[in-house]
Design a protein around this nucleic acid. Structure first.
Lengths: 231, 231
DNA sequence: CCGTGTTGTTTGTTATAACAAACAACAAAA
DNA sequence: TTTTGTTGTTTGTTATAACAAACAACACGG
């Protein structure tokens, strides 16, 4: 028997809290270094501290939040060294994902979808809509990684992106425009379509490396990353 | 002022619970598929369910425990496909770690320590002491990975090992003895000492791949891994 | 014999209160 | 003025109880 009824599922409060915190982090809506106290978050969510505690525990376990003194959760402030480490791991993982993606056959629809997203990104950049651009940018990358058919790999990469989250808002539109002289995105996609694994990996690695190089230049003498001045 | 007093630090209960569960998983002391209920674990630890809940939440977030229906935590039962995926990610990460290790200078003491561990492993295998062997084996691998000086990389690799934990007890001494015709461990260590990055990576990858190939052979028709019969 | 509704038990979820450690502000003594 | 001790507040930790959803066993009616 088939009906038009939708599946009922109630998500626990701590799951909702986790999702909200996760998105906020990924969007860089928290100033790095901020301490997140349980009671404050609980008040924001309008719940008791129990589900908030679960959400924070999960985020700390994922390495998205650092645990400061007395096990308090703080929004990580990436140093230049940590950014460099993150870049190494991301290159290893995302490079491999691109490689695996190139080794497999895919639907024409998949490719078309990604190409459409690329042109959408192009127009968003010209319109200086950074927020929307980053959203599409993220989906494009993970669209490629999903083509590897290795869920574990995608999951692990997602974790690394989450760790980059707090400094993601440091990216300024000017940089993205500047960089688009050489578009590694389209190159990577073409390589995957052609089944050129080595090329696909190289393009993704280049994309990650160049972005990291730009962000690394934002570090001050102490190695802490600083938000660029918006002109 | 310097005294002989040691630093006092009290670890929270949920931290202790997490460590115990973690070690048990890593040693493969839980049958894959086991459901771990909060109240059962709480009784084992002699605490309330609150700290246990934190520990389990953390393990689930790390992907070490799967969450079954009604968010219950179950010891994952790896399929052949999942093992293959795990192998791909491990090769990417651990291969890179070995490569980075080879690119740096290290103390002679570090090398000597690892060599001693290798000979220790040799004797443990001959004595068929699998439990102790695996312990040293783990420390040897992570000794190498630590030489990469990339904490994030080590942390991520540790996560992958944790996920392999439940099936680690499937390894039988005979296999380890058999395999030692070609010792990738000493070869990798030598490559790192010589600064041969490509070789170091290749040896580690070979080590991982061969072990995975052995474990993959233990899968039944459904793809589920099965504990080998001990003769 | 099979399907259905009921009931009791199990188990994760959430709120709450008591607790203890850490921190900050302030006061007292050198 | 600087240091030290005290006190009040903040904040993570833990236990406990009430709750609700899911599951299993059982009884009833076809």
């Amino acid at each position: 028997m088939t009906t038009s009824l939708k599946r009922i599922e109630r998500e626990p409060l701590w799951d909702l809290a986790h999702a909200q915190l996760r998105d906020a982090l990924l969007a860089g809506r928290f100033e790095p270094g901020t301490v997140l106290t349980l009671r404050f978050l609980a008040e924001q969510f309008g719940t008791s501290i129990t589900p908030v505690r679960d959400a924070v525990t999960r985020l700390v376990a994922q390495g998205v939040l650092q645990q400061g003194p007395r096990n308090s959760a703080i929004v990580p402030n990436l140093s230049r060294k940590e950014l460099a480490d993150l870049t190494v791991v991301r290159c290893a993982l995302e490079g491999r994902a691109a490689r695996e993606a190139a080794l497999q056959k895919h639907d024409a629809a998949t490719f078309r979808q990604l190409e459409e997203r690329l042109s959408k990104m192009q127009s968003l950049i010209q319109a200086r809509k950074l927020e929307s651009y980053l959203e599409h940018h993220r989906k494009f990358h993970f669209g490629i990684y999903a083509m590897s058919s290795i869920p574990l790999l995608v999951e692990t990469i997602e974790n690394m992106w989450l760790r980059c989250g707090p400094v993601l808002s440091f990216v300024i539109p000017e940089y993205v425009v500047l960089l688009k002289g050489w578009d590694h995105h389209t190159a990577a996609l073409k390589a995957i379509m052609a089944g050129d694994a080595a090329r696909a990996e190289a393009e993704i690695v280049a994309d990650i490396t160049e972005a990291a190089h730009y962000l690394g230049g934002l570090a001050d003498a102490t190695g802490q990353l600083r938000r660029p001045v918006i002109p």
